[in-house]
Design a protein around this nucleic acid. Sequence first.
DNA 1: CCAATTCGTTGGCCAAGCCAATGTTGGTAG
DNA 2: CTACCAACATTGGCTTGGCCAACGAATTGG
Lengths: 153, 153
Amino acid sequence: MENAEDTVPGRLRALPSRLVNQIATAANRLADQALAATGSRRYHYALLAALAEFGPASQAALGRRTGIDRSDIVATVNQLADRELVERSPDPDDRRRNVVTVTPAGTRHLEELDRLLAGVQDELLAPLTTAEREQFVGLLTRVLDGAGGQVRH
Amino acid sequence: MENAEDTVPGRLRALPSRLVNQIATAANRLADQALAATGSRRYHYALLAALAEFGPASQAALGRRTGIDRSDIVATVNQLADRELVERSPDPDDRRRNVVTVTPAGTRHLEELDRLLAGVQDELLAPLTTAEREQFVGLLTRVLDGAGGQVRH
DNA sequence: CCAATTCGTTGGCCAAGCCAATGTTGGTAG
DNA sequence: CTACCAACATTGGCTTGGCCAACGAATTGG
């Protein structure tokens, strides 16, 4: 048996954190590329999706749901509002808040983004069988839930 | 008729690309935090690890091995050389090149970083059993190899 | 009524990842 | 030998994502 110590094969590639990072980079590249033609970015999708999932919300609530900073929410809502994909109106019940609502055009746009991003997932997971994909998502979810506690401040 | 509640549960969390991204963020946080005390960053580790794995190399070769841009390699080697963890010497065989070599202190430092990052992996994969971790790494590797072709420019 | 909190907004910071330009050295075709 | 092209190290700069601090306006709790 040779000394395992001086061989250390594939040190870089072996680290799960590094694997995850490289996959995230690839995934982001695919997603950005797919979204580019629509004039939207990942933040826009995250916001539209959060609105579709939970209904109209204040900007602060959107930030908490998506993990996007309040200040970045402002810019994202600005851009979506400019394209009339969402509406920003003052909340009569609490005048500190703006209520953000998806417009019909926004819903249509989201459906297109959904379609595009579904394609990205397929491309990303192409090497895996259907069963493995479920396994993969399950493991990812559990890892995230475990590490997720650390993330939140 | 669509039953949105049945068909689109947790749209955001369901996307593998998003899961991977959040895990990558958490992993980077843990890694940065662990490395912070040593005065090193991920780039430093990547470089030292590449040197330990493949032996002394030119800066361009290091860039190709780690995926780090040549211009960023310069800064990273500067910092490592300032701390005398690597040596940069002109290659007598090809005077365009600098040969970067790990010093004994660099090797000791790398061992410490290895130890710290191993801890990070443990923390990251805490929710998984040993068997699941192997499964996870296997799936990650296959996904990366599949998507890896797209990454290279 | 005063203090603390929440909200939207502005402005700015930093690290990562790139890309272009420059001067030098090496290899090679003619 | 000359001329030309490729590889190298280096500098400088650009963009993006993620984050934080501070502010005024509005709300809530003591």
